[in-house]
C-alpha cells in the first residue's frame, strides 16, 4: 500500500539534490507533488521524471524568498490539486564567508532563502491546513544549526532559526492536528557541500561518520516520507537527525 496516496505535497528547492529525492519519493508513495524550484528548467525536468514514473506533478518556478512568488505557487497548487497536505521546506543556500568579511547582501540572501523562505511557505499553507484540520510541515535544517559553522554564521543562524520556528509553529498548530518537524541531514552527496569542499574532502568526511559514509538524498527522502505518513501523526516539534551518527543530539 502506498503511504501518501491522495495527498498533495509541495517540495521547495526540488530541482536537484535532497529536494528532488524527496519529491520523487513522495510521488512514488502516491502524492501529487508541486516541484517548487527557483530554476524553471530543473523544476520541469523533475516534473517530467515524476510523470515518466507514473506519478503526478506540477512544476512551478518559485523563489521562496519572495512573497508574491510563494503565494502564486500555493495558488497554483490549489488550482491543480484542490488542497495542500504536506509542505517540505527544503530550498536552501550555503555560501561561505567569515563574519568579519560577510557583506549585508549575502546575509540577507541566506536568511531570506533559508529562514524567511521557510516562514513564507509555512504561512501560505497554514490556513489551508487549519481548514482541513490536518497537515504536515517538514523543514530541512542542518548540523550547522546545532553546532555552528566557522565559515557560515548566516547559514548556521538560518538553520538554528528553522528549529526554533518549527517548535513554535508545532505548538501553534498542534490543536488542529498539524504536525511540524525538522529533518537534520549530515553532509550529503549533493551540489551544496561541493560549493565549499573538494571532492576528496567530501568523501574524506565519511571517516568521521560512525556509519562510515556520507548521506545520500534517498536517506533524507525516506525520513521525509515517514514524517509525512500516518505513522508519524503524533510526532511534532521534533528534529529527526539523519546523519549516520555524525552528531548525536
Amino acid at each position: 500500500m502506498r503511504r501518501l496516496e491522495g495527498r498533495t505535497a509541495i517540495v521547495t528547492g526540488s530541482g536537484q539534490g535532497i529536494g528532488e529525492a524527496i519529491a520523487m519519493a513522495m510521488a512514488e508513495e502516491g502524492a501529487g507533488v508541486v516541484v517548487a524550484e527557483l530554476r524553471e528548467e530543473t523544476a520541469d525536468a523533475v516534473r517530467r521524471k515524476i510523470e515518466e514514473g507514473g506519478g503526478t506533478a506540477l512544476a512551478h518556478a518559485t523563489d521562496v524568498s519572495q512573497e508574491p512568488s510563494v503565494d502564486a505557487m500555493v495558488q497554483a497548487c490549489l488550482e491543480r490539486f484542490g488542497k495542500v497536505d504536506i509542505l517540505v521546506n527544503n530550498a536552501g543556500i550555503y555560501p561561505t564567508s567569515t563574519v568579519a568579511d560577510m557583506d549585508e547582501d549575502e546575509w540577507e540572501r541566506v536568511i531570506g532563502t533559508n529562514l524567511f523562505g521557510t516562514f513564507l511557505c509555512s504561512r501560505a499553507v497554514t490556513p489551508h491546513m487549519l481548514q482541513q484540520q490536518g497537515g504536515r510541515i517538514i523543514s530541512i535544517t542542518s548540523g550547522r544549526g546545532l553546532q555552528g559553522a566557522d565559515n557560515g554564521a548566516h547559514y548556521a543562524s538560518s538553520k538554528g532559526g528553522i528549529i526554533g520556528f518549527t517548535k513554535s509553529l508545532a505548538r501553534e498548530l498542534a490543536p488542529a492536528g498539524v504536525a511540524v518537524n525538522c529533518i537534520c541531514p549530515g553532509v550529503s552527496d549533493t551540489a551544496q557541500p561541493r560549493g565549499h569542499r573538494t571532492e576528496e574532502e567530501l568523501y574524506a568526511s565519511a571517516a568521521r561518520i560512525p556509519l562510515g559514509r556520507i548521506g545520500q538524498p534517498a536517506d533524507m527522502a525516506r525520513a521525509a516520507v515517514f514524517l509525512a505518513s500516518d505513522r508519524a501523526k503524533f510526532v511534532t516539534g521534533q528534529t529527526l537527525v539523519v546523519n549516520g551518527g555524525a552528531i548525536m543530539q
Binding site: 517548535k167 508545532a170 505548538r171 498542534a174 549530515g186 560512525p210 556509519l211 548521506g215 545520500q216 536517506d219 525516506r222 525520513a223 516520507v225 515517514f226 508519524a232 503524533f234 510526532v235 511534532t236 516539534g237 521534533q238 529527526l240 537527525v241 539523519v242 546523519n243 549516520g244 551518527g245 548525536m248 543530539q249
Partner: peptide
Amino acid sequence: DESDYVTGATLHVNGGMVMP
C-alpha cells in the same frame, strides 16, 4: 530499513509534550 542512515538518534513521539 527506512532509517538506514540513522544512528545514535532519539525520536520523541509525544504530541509536542517535549521539544528538546
